[in-house]
Amino acid sequence: MHGGKVTGASDGVGMGARFIVTLPTTRAAATENADPTEPAKQPVRRLRVLVVDDNHDAAESLAMILHEHEVQCAFDGEAALAKAEEFHPDVVILDIGLPGINGYELARRLRALPVTANAVLAALSGFGAPEDRARSSEAGCEQHFVKPVNPQTLIDFLRDNATKLTL
């Protein structure tokens, strides 16, 4: 899935073995082994993405997955509002179950800020019932992902929105 490869070699029984794991350092390198029958994907416009999650590891892991973009993290609603004012994100991916200001209220407040009024908001939450999705939509989120989300789904979501934001 990462576009890498694993090779192994041995000089014989009792001689040990060598294994080499190769992973690409950029997304472009990962496409070298892409299926030639699939249409080539256009380069992605680098977006400013704000990830908001009270789970530091989850937020930072997501930031690493989205490395093609400029990503900053906030770990609660108040910090997200302050970060949005200085960072001017194109996209905000926010957890719903935040302490203090929950994700629904955070989405409403982000919509009210001039710097994020037109940002793409996406909920990323463990709450995935139809009423949860409806609440995130009413609060201003264009998308609602349920944890755990496939990383490629988020990468594709940002790619699609990068295209829309440049039109």
Rank of each mutant, 00 (worst) to 15 (best):
E78L: 12
E78A: 14
R27D: 12
E78M: 09
A84C: 09
H67V: 07
P36A: 07
D95W: 04
A82N: 08
S61Q: 12
I96P: 00
R46Y: 04
G77F: 08
D76C: 11
D90V: 03
E32D: 11
L23Q: 12
K83N: 05
V49L: 01
E70V: 03
L50R: 07
V51H: 02
G16F: 10
G77R: 03
A59Y: 09
R48W: 01
T31M: 13
V49A: 02
V44Y: 00
G77M: 07
I93W: 04
A30K: 11
L47T: 07
E60M: 13
T37S: 15
T22L: 11
N33W: 13
E86Q: 14
L98Q: 05
A40Q: 11
A29I: 07
R18L: 15
V71D: 03
V52N: 09
H69K: 01
G16C: 09
E68P: 03
A34Q: 13
A17L: 14
L62S: 07
N33F: 12
I65N: 01
A63C: 10
V91W: 00
E85Q: 14
V71T: 03
G97D: 12
E68H: 00
E38N: 14
T22E: 15
V51P: 02
A63D: 01
D57G: 07
I20R: 14
T25H: 12
H88G: 04
S61E: 12
H56D: 12
A74N: 08
